[in-house]
Design a protein around this nucleic acid. Sequence first.
DNA 1: CTGTATCCCTGATGATACTG
DNA 2: CAGTATCATCAGGGATACAG
Lengths: 150, 150
Amino acid sequence: MERTIVDYQEGSVQEKLQKILGDVEEDGGTCPIRNILVRFSDKWSTLSIFHLGDAGTLRFNELKKRVDGISQRMLTVTLRNLERDGIVTRRVYPEIPPRVEYQLTDLGRSLLVQIIELGDWASNHSNQIIEARSRFDAREGRVIDSVSLN
Amino acid sequence: MERTIVDYQEGSVQEKLQKILGDVEEDGGTCPIRNILVRFSDKWSTLSIFHLGDAGTLRFNELKKRVDGISQRMLTVTLRNLERDGIVTRRVYPEIPPRVEYQLTDLGRSLLVQIIELGDWASNHSNQIIEARSRFDAREGRVIDSVSLN
DNA sequence: CTGTATCCCTGATGATACTG
DNA sequence: CAGTATCATCAGGGATACAG
């Protein structure tokens, strides 16, 4: 029913995997790919990028309202890191009270496309995953949370 | 030079984003999409999936050798979680010494395709990101690491 | 070989209060 | 409004030793 890796897409997927594996394992800590994956792994970055991609331009507090549950501090940290990586721009208007507008850069929009695909995958497969978890937990007779086993 | 979101792919990207945003913000904590994104955000899961996708089938220690720097404990935890989510299968051979083989499920392979795309994006844009970081750090006159600002 | 069980420590993050 | 600064917490994850 599911297709294999090879014929699922344009056929270059295997090559991409090889390339990634080569890069990824070359230096155990400072590898840029790991670095980048680690960054966009975190939930606040992902959600911020989603909302900025959706809205186009947002002020600090507008974004804060949309990203449900984020604290002021974490939004600041997240936006700084995204700005540093060239994913978002930060524009400050010298007014009182201050106005700061954020939006995705071209680089950010190209990243957005990728994480939308990932989010779409998650959305489309969440049922399968939830069912798998239920079966597993039933077999084990206990719950294993994210990093328990302690 | 960069294309916009709209024409970059089949045109449904906007719709996907809407759908994701709807799902993602509906319940601030237990949302399955958040759950899933959070899981595949972590570096060990991603790397394990890469290597299993590359090799097909791997024993515990074979995988451990390939995933540079992972501890025994974290490999166990990672594999349990992936198994629980239906991403990998775990087959135990009743031999002495024990042999345990892991491989991706169909679900896992379909996920692999997505994270390969993300990894490929990271690989292709790592230079831009590294340069952006340099410029930012030069402007700021100091380094901001992942979550400092303390 | 393939795990489990402990101990421990650091970094990520929320809460709160303060500032330009 | 848009942050910074500080404090406190706690889960992620390494090291190590033990087990089937």
